[in-house]
Amino acid sequence: MKLIGIEEHFLTPEVRAAWRAAGLDALDPSVGHQSGVIERRIMDIASERLALMDETGLDVQVLSMTTPALHEVTEGSVDMARRVNDGVAEAIARHPDRFQAFATLPVTEPEAAARELERCVATLGFKGTMLHGRVGARNLDHPDLRPIFETVARLRVPVMLHPRTPSQAVRDAYYSGFSAEVDGAFATFGLGWHYDAGIQFVRLVLAGTFDRFPDLQLILGHWGEVVLFYAERLAAMDRVAGLEQPIEAYLRRNLYVTSSGIFLPHYLERAMALVGPERLLFSTDYPYQYREGGDARRFLDSCGLEEKEKAGFAYRNWERLTGSLLR
């Protein structure tokens, strides 16, 4: 059975240098996560990546720029995004059966980002885009960013909503008071990333984004970035939200959920109960969650899904989601 991982990351030296030029290595603890073995693997879109895909049992990776991508880069971001996307397109051309991609966008310039998304989908054949939460101080529901979502909706491509580090004020209030190392972990992969991504999705719902764009499809990693585990509490906002549909309806109509390397069957069961089996997607969160020994294929084989649902989870749901792309 084909196995497609839809949250599989890369980084380029140019983007890392832009982070440093913007001072992000001092401001965002996620920037320091690309070191050692992780650094070598995330910079490689070639032999080692393919070998580790084979080892874990993954046939295809959908490549995406790691967090915080270009969300804090202003100087030269439009040309930089174009170079990044062209480089990824070259890697796909070398290995067309092994790689697909999400577009990297210069989101600090939303109109240019919309144009780059259209180029990536129409010309390069990319499958959608990945957004990483806030753009500077603007949450994703900010009106300035609407051109991106308008273009996404028109092209009928999905958006993967990826975590990023909470703002400094939030980190000071909730994720500080320990050592610098613990504070950084707490604010990122420990918990902060996942609350932040889930909140961005909820903000898009409450802002009426899915009422304006009813066919817009978003993807949340890590089995729904906490949101699905509190769906009943979110539903209590229906009486004040003023939306066209109950919040639960947007979960089942506009949201896909992926594993992001958290291979726990009871999380899968919870996600499936809320969004349905046709909205489950597979991913390994490479290279961060990579583990030796064929974990991806082993989890697929033992996840407890019936054969039809398992095939959907493994590859068919993704192919159906991206099969209507405009060319």
Score class of each variant (00 low, 15 high):
residue 280 L to I: 07
residue 168 Q to G: 05
residue 300 L to K: 12
residue 309 E to S: 07
residue 298 R to N: 09
residue 137 A to V: 04
residue 220 L to Y: 00
residue 165 T to E: 05
residue 118 E to T: 06
residue 16 R to K: 14
residue 11 L to T: 02
residue 236 A to W: 12
residue 187 A to T: 07
residue 24 L to N: 01
residue 78 V to H: 04
residue 24 L to S: 11
residue 257 V to R: 00
residue 71 H to M: 11
residue 15 V to D: 08
residue 281 L to T: 09
residue 131 L to I: 10
residue 55 E to V: 13
residue 62 V to H: 08
residue 95 H to R: 06
residue 186 F to H: 09
residue 325 L to D: 01
residue 154 R to P: 05
residue 280 L to F: 10
residue 194 H to D: 02
residue 55 E to L: 07
residue 30 S to C: 15
residue 196 D to I: 06
residue 130 M to R: 04
residue 15 V to S: 12
residue 153 A to T: 11
residue 57 G to F: 14
residue 308 K to A: 14
residue 258 T to S: 15
residue 101 A to L: 06
residue 317 N to T: 06
residue 109 E to C: 07
residue 71 H to W: 09
residue 150 E to Y: 05
residue 54 D to F: 10
residue 200 Q to M: 14
residue 124 L to P: 10
residue 305 L to G: 00
residue 44 D to N: 12
residue 186 F to I: 08
residue 218 L to A: 06
residue 104 T to N: 02
residue 42 I to K: 09
residue 264 L to G: 03
residue 243 L to I: 12
residue 46 A to I: 13
residue 103 A to N: 03
residue 87 G to Q: 10
residue 179 S to D: 14
residue 231 A to D: 10
residue 88 V to I: 15
residue 53 M to A: 04
residue 300 L to V: 11
residue 276 G to Q: 08
residue 293 G to L: 14
residue 253 R to Q: 14
residue 154 R to L: 05
residue 241 A to C: 03
residue 284 T to I: 15
residue 31 V to A: 00
residue 255 L to H: 01
residue 294 G to D: 04
residue 261 G to Q: 11
residue 4 I to Q: 08
residue 76 G to S: 12
residue 303 C to A: 10
residue 223 W to E: 00
residue 143 P to H: 11
residue 98 R to M: 12
residue 247 I to Y: 01
residue 36 G to R: 11
residue 41 R to M: 12
residue 44 D to T: 13
residue 266 H to A: 03
residue 190 G to L: 02
residue 32 G to E: 06
residue 86 D to Y: 05
residue 185 A to Y: 13
residue 318 W to N: 00
residue 200 Q to H: 07
residue 41 R to D: 15
